[in-house]
Design a protein around this nucleic acid. Structure first.
Length: 561
RNA sequence: CCCCUCGUAGUUCAACGGAUAGAACGCGGGAUUGCGGAUCCCGUAAUAGAGGUUCGAUUCCUCUCGGGGGGACCA
């Protein structure tokens, strides 16, 4: 890659001049007019050797100029001592050709080659409906998965679901208590979608008799002693998982592994019990003394002998490794888990040393409405599905103008894209303000903007093809921002993979789409002039890159819209 | 009280210790009636406060103020 080439060139020259500049760093100047790459080597070197940075920069440039090849047009000193590189038209034209050669593979890199990485995300609870909050880890996890795979790793997706616990008991108790019929489709769906859970929760808080009855059901779920409970449990659980699958499909996710708390609990308990040197007994519970590690103490097995979230997490880690011997295990979890996760990781490092060090948590914030948290006016939790439906509804009028026969088919891909974009446009870990009226306008900085730009480019290409015009990178215009941005895509993907941050891709694709739209407004692509073949090639390269970028965000790229 | 985290245009977000802090929405103005106007162009406006480190700080350190999360049997 050109970056490595330039870096080596600078390194070599510094060595030759006997200048110690520490770690040589190459970056892109903030302004395209300054050049394509710049290094602060002279400033760093000047400091170490006590020399004037600008003077040293001139000396380095003089030496670099002797070595430059046809990819480099100009090397110059600017500002307080930056050395700026300007690449040649020939280089950029070559890059456009490269994009067209690689097509769907453009942007792939080998940062994680040879690594096995498991990504766990979404993590809904059976017997409850997936809510608006699940959209965040789903969008982040799916995007991370694709970025990681694009960076050369063998990646597998995992989903971890809470199929046991008090929330399940509440749902089942209410279902039985209300004498609902498990063979009724309507009752079954109500159970799966959290209707009984909500009512059960109210009953639990209402009086002690209900509370005791629900706790009794909870025990029966654990020991499987009651045939009636078992049947409702099994059917309800199965129906929940089925409904989740429908939503995963709509969102564009397909998991390779499913883990359940009913399985991780016993495994986790076993791990805790077999490591008395790590865990300690306290007030009838088994805890991990986090204070000794600058953290806080947490209970792993409660005084009833049941494993808590923390112990289950250890069990999960072991089960994951059993199914897929990973080098890194990433879990996308909510911010509120952050502090627990640190304790769990430390405990895992001590009890499962070969696995604990491979644990990594990516945290995500909440999806909030501007009015407050994530519930609607009535206080009901907003379901993930209703959010997508609402966005799709908003799109309907605009899609009437779409250039495809069945505009209805576009509703979902565009709605999902709009929602995912608003989640992935910002750094992970912070709350996302989701405003139907403002932040989700489909103009400017948005998912539909990217999809529209892609469709527009495809449409131009189709027209060119209809006229029998061929792309050709050898007829070039003056290189513009579009070309310069195009060849940065692979390094953007690499950075996103290195930092586990999808938003770098979002920012980049938006910038590229903007640059292309400006280009489109200024120059006619398909015309009789001799520059048309190059412009067609450039348009194709942009379409390929936007499509790949959208893919990495988990957003569809329709041919028309 | 302790730990973590975040404070950037009116709003929602960017900025790998670097050059004039960059977009979008909003607001104001405009686009030779030519490939898709869900577009493009111009303008408007910001680093919470005070110190420190550095040639250079939105970024690192300290304190203050403000928001969010966590602090033993729920996740």
């Amino acid at each position: 890659m050109i970056r490595e080439k330039l870096k080596n060139l600078v390194r070599e020259t510094l060595e030759q001049l006997a200048v110690d500049a520490g770690d040589v760093r190459l970056e892109h100047p903030a302004d395209f007019s300054l050049g394509d790459f710049s290094t602060n080597a002279a400033m760093a070197g000047g400091k170490r050797t006590g020399r004037d940075p600008k003077e040293l920069a001139e000396e380095i440039v003089a030496e670099l100029n002797k070595k430059k090849d046809e990819d480099i047009e100009k090397i110059e000193v600017a500002g307080p001592g930056f050395i700026n590189f300007r690449l040649s038209q020939k280089f950029f034209a070559g890059q456009v050709a490269e994009v067209l050669k690689k097509r769907d593979d453009f942007g792939k890199n080998d940062l994680l080659a040879g690594k096995k990485i498991m990504v766990e995300y979404t993590d809904p609870n059976p017997f409850k409906e997936m809510h608006i909050g699940h959209l965040v880890p789903n969008a982040i996890g799916e995007s991370l998965s694709r970025i990681i795979a694009f960076s050369g790793a063998r990646m597998e997706r995992a989903n971890y679901q809470g199929d046991v616990g008090l929330h399940v008991a509440k749902a089942i108790w209410h279902f039985l208590n209300a004498e609902k019929d498990i063979t009724s489709e309507k009752d079954l769906d109500g159970l799966a979608l959290g209707v009984d859970y909500a009512a059960g929760t109210r009953a639990y808080e209402e009086n002690d008799a209900n509370k005791a009855a629900i706790e009794e059901v909870n025990r029966k779920i654990y020991d499987g002693s009651d045939a009636g409970v078992n049947e409702v449990y099994q059917r309800g659980r199965a129906r929940s998982l089925e409904l989740f699958e429908e939503l995963y499909e709509r969102l564009g996710t397909k998991f390779d592994h499913y883990f359940f708390e009913s399985e991780t609990g016993p495994v986790g308990k076993g791990i805790v019990e077999s490591h008395p040197e790590v865990f300690a007994e306290s007030d009838g519970a088994i805890v991990f003394r986090g204070e000794e590690h600058g953290l806080h103490t947490r209970v792993f097995i409660n005084s009833d002998g049941l494993p808590t979230y923390e112990a289950k997490e250890l069990g999960l880690l072991k089960k994951k490794a059993g199914e897929f011997p990973f080098d890194v295990s990433i879990a996308v979890v909510g911010n509120e888990i952050k502090e627990y996760a640190r304790v769990v990781k430390r405990a895992a490092e001590l009890s499962l040393p070969e696995l604990g060090s491979k644990m990594l948590f990516v945290t995500n914030g909440m999806l909030r409405l501007p009015s407050g948290k994530m519930s609607s006016r009535t206080g009901e939790v907003i379901s993930a599905e209703s959010v997508l439906d609402a966005v799709a509804e908003r799109l309907a009028p605009k899609l009437q103008e779409a250039r495809i026969a069945n505009a209805d088919e576009l509703k979902d891909p565009v709605a999902v894209g709009a929602v995912k974009y608003s989640i992935l446009k910002q750094r992970t870990g912070r709350d996302i303000i989701f405003d139907f009226d403002k932040s989700l306008s489909f103009e400017g900085d948005s998912g539909p903007y990217l999809q529209y730009t892609h469709a527009r480019a495809r449409s131009v290409l189709e027209k060119a093809r209809g006229l029998g015009m061929e792309a050709d990178v050898s007829f070039r215009r003056d290189v513009g921002i579009v070309e310069k941005l195009l060849c940065r895509f692979p390094e953007v993907v690499e950075r996103a993979a290195k930092e586990y941050e999808p938003h770098y891709i979002t920012t980049y694709v938006t910038e590229l789409a903007g640059a292309f739209n400006s280009f489109y407004a200024q120059e006619r692509i398909v015309d009789a002039g001799d520059k048309a073949p190059y412009r067609i090639a450039l348009t194709d390269a942009v379409a390929v890159t936007i499509k790949n970028g959208l893919y990495l965000l988990g957003i569809a790229a329709p041919e028309k819209m």
